[in-house]
Design a protein around this nucleic acid. Structure first.
Lengths: 190, 190
DNA sequence: AGCATTTCTTGCCATAGGGTAAGAGTGCTC
DNA sequence: GAGCACTCTTACCCTATGGCAAGAAATGCT
């Protein structure tokens, strides 16, 4: 399973079979249970996690202290807060498991070594960042151009695991609306 | 001037004076005038531009064909659309000058060479991406947690050049509101 | 099973911001 | 310097979403 997941994630033309072997070997297993806080706000992130199964969310708080869910992570996704990991600063978000699950972690130091030793990995990392950057840019455009209902239906279609496992309030804060409004939207749809 | 701007931008502990020399030498001058479309939607971006002076905006269109300004770039900033440059895909946005100005460009091929030859540059690139990623993530959080007025005041305080040079309609679409609303907000403030 | 807690729904009214259109101000062009 | 195009303001009314609160449903704990 480890091979299947990781060779899927680290797919890149410049990463040879040999390189891939080194990368895979550098990952350690990690499992977690529902509700567990995997990484906590205030600490510096020292690893990232490639998800094999389960659902994880990242969240922060607004000035009123309400939780705002900023992202969800599912299978084959990389659970990370880049600012903390690469800038070696304190996490500004919490990462919490919404279901039981497991995956593979790699530490900052080991990743750093491979990043400079394997040209394909630095290319891969750049592409990963590029995609993630695009996602967030798109998200901020979507918030201003689409209605809450459209954005909700988008999740229903493209990320149904979120609907299945995350409580309404978390989905609502991710969409930028209140749980009350999301409840009404649901009613309206059905 | 070239040295001042570029050594400021490419500041990183792992970039030696020698490395910096190579990086600076790889940049070509580029000037532009108000209203000019520097890079056009549909083409693959083949370089990026470090701004010495002037103001540039990136914009796209929503499904109704209205322009949406997605970003503004000022002095010392890197004018780029990462998805197009690094993924070698067609630009999804236009980049247009709001004022006369100039800066320094570096081509994809040359950057690519230096990226792999100079470890400090790949670190620098990763940090740059990290910051940009954070900016967009923050922007999407701000849109859902702050009122349009608060976001406008934020620009007034932190990016006053935008207020000075960009027409109201572009600022409004950047904020995610209509020009009508922004006009009311302005009135309300004064 | 029984109780407590959290999650979700619904109703009432409030408000930020949108849609449209008219008019004022500004600057460009021939 | 008259006409034109663009930008900005303002007024009218409308809609999506919020705030609050009560109740219903689901979940978890002992």
């Amino acid at each position: 399973m480890k091979e299947i997941i990781l060779s899927q994630v680290y797919q890149h033309p410049l990463i040879s079979t040999e390189d891939l072997r080194r990368i895979i070997d550098a990952h350690e297993p990690r499992s977690f249970s529902k509700g567990e806080h995997l990484y906590k706000r205030g600490k510096v992130l020292n690893e990232y996690l490639v998800l094999e199964s389960g659902l994880i969310r990242s969240f922060t708080h607004n000035y009123q202290g309400d939780e705002i869910t900023t992202d969800f992570f599912g299978q084959y996704e990389v659970v990370i807060e880049v600012l903390s990991l690469f800038q070696r600063t304190a996490l500004q978000e919490d990462l919490q498991a919404l279901t039981d699950g497991c995956g593979w972690t790699i530490s900052y130091d080991v990743f750093q070594e491979l990043f400079h030793a394997i040209p394909g990995l630095s290319e891969w990392g750049r592409l990963w960042m590029t995609n993630k950057l695009f996602q967030f840019k798109q998200k901020s455009i979507d918030i201003i151009t689409q209605s809450a209902k459209e954005r909700y239906l988008d999740i229903v279609t493209n990320k149904p695991q979120i609907i299945r496992h995350a409580p309404l309030k978390q989905i609502a804060s991710y969409l930028g609306i209140t749980d009350t409004s999301l409840s009404r939207i649901r009613k309206d749809i059905s």
